Computed example of a mutant assay.
Amino acid sequence: MIAQLLAAVPVAVACSVPVALLGALLLHRMRLRSITAAVIVLALVPVLAALAGVIGVSGFMYTPQLAGAVVVCAVVAAVTVPAAMMLGRGIARDVMWLHEAREAERAAEAARRQLVAWISHDLRTPLAGIRAMSEGLADGVISDADDVAEYARRIRRETVRLAGMVEDLFQLSRITSGAMRLTFSAVPLHDVVSEAVAAEAVAANRKGVVVRADGGCVWPVVRGSDPELARVVRNLLSNAIRHTPPAGTVVVAADVQDGRARLRVDDECGGIADADLERVFDVAFRGGSARTPGEEAGGGLGLAIARGLVEAHGGGIRVVNHGPGCRFEVDLPLAARPD
């Protein structure tokens, strides 16, 4: 008996090895293709190699033992193939998730570096001005009372700009880190818009831009956090005023569509290039404008903050070219009706 077994070993090996090598070749060629198919092949190769060995040992003749081995191999294959498919799909999902996570990490790192570079540049400009003016005052180079008062006003203005940029960075950090906690309530959208229009009226008047709320709208009541919604509207208005030329108009309107509140801010900026429409809400994105900001420019974070706050409310925000300018649209959940 032992002698027969020893004699069968070379035959079984000779028949099994080609099948195993063929399976290895298939796995090598499929390593960059379907993971699921590769796992199925990996599961089938041992079964087929064992079956080939049994057939070789039987002398390629039908015997009850061969029939039993074929049945056993078929049952094993029927169990392992579905299991291999499930395992392969799970591995494919995990690999895809890891790939997307790495891509997102790379994008976030690139955005962080870009943000640091841009913010460093934007902070350097007002800081250099403050330093020069303060040194002039401290050294007595500026002694005339009117000049001293003007320098003090400029230093204050630059300080306010710096404080706004730091606040924007802090707000964006809270949004991206998930540390923001909102208290939701029923918020009349008309009240939020009225306050934002009044707050931005000073900047609009200084530039000669008309900003108004559409009086013909039926303003919905939304579910949200009043301070954060006010920040969203003010950021959108500030952006619209900044890019609308003098004598232009910025209009805020709202309605209800498909069971959601829809807020619209229309400006007369002249439109945005199609290639830039998807990037408008990216951190520190300013399109083709110069890197040196003007008096009213910030760190390019306003729209990114607006998107983060809107998404924290379970809403969405987008921009399209509309008429002589752009239309920013925000959709928000409606407040629940009282029973």
Rank of each mutant, 00 (worst) to 15 (best):
V116W: 07
L98H: 14
D122T: 12
V280N: 00
L137A: 09
P324M: 03
V45I: 11
E296L: 02
V57F: 00
V218W: 04
L277M: 10
R156A: 15
L115T: 09
V233S: 02
R31I: 08
D255M: 05
P333C: 05
V166Q: 12
G59I: 00
T80S: 15
M86N: 07
V57P: 01
L237C: 04
F60Q: 08
G308R: 00
V232F: 04
A213H: 07
L182F: 04
L27V: 05
L51P: 01
L42R: 04
L127D: 04
V197S: 06
V280Q: 00
V13N: 01
A3G: 09
S58C: 14
H121R: 12
G315D: 00
V265S: 03
A111H: 15
A52R: 04
E296R: 15
A312Q: 12
V280C: 01
D282W: 06
G164Q: 09
A20C: 05
R264Q: 12
V197F: 12
H99G: 12
L22W: 10
P46V: 08
M96P: 07
H121F: 11
P82W: 05
A336W: 01
A12C: 11
R307F: 02
K207L: 04
A213F: 08
V17W: 01
L48H: 05
I91T: 13
V19T: 13
A199P: 12
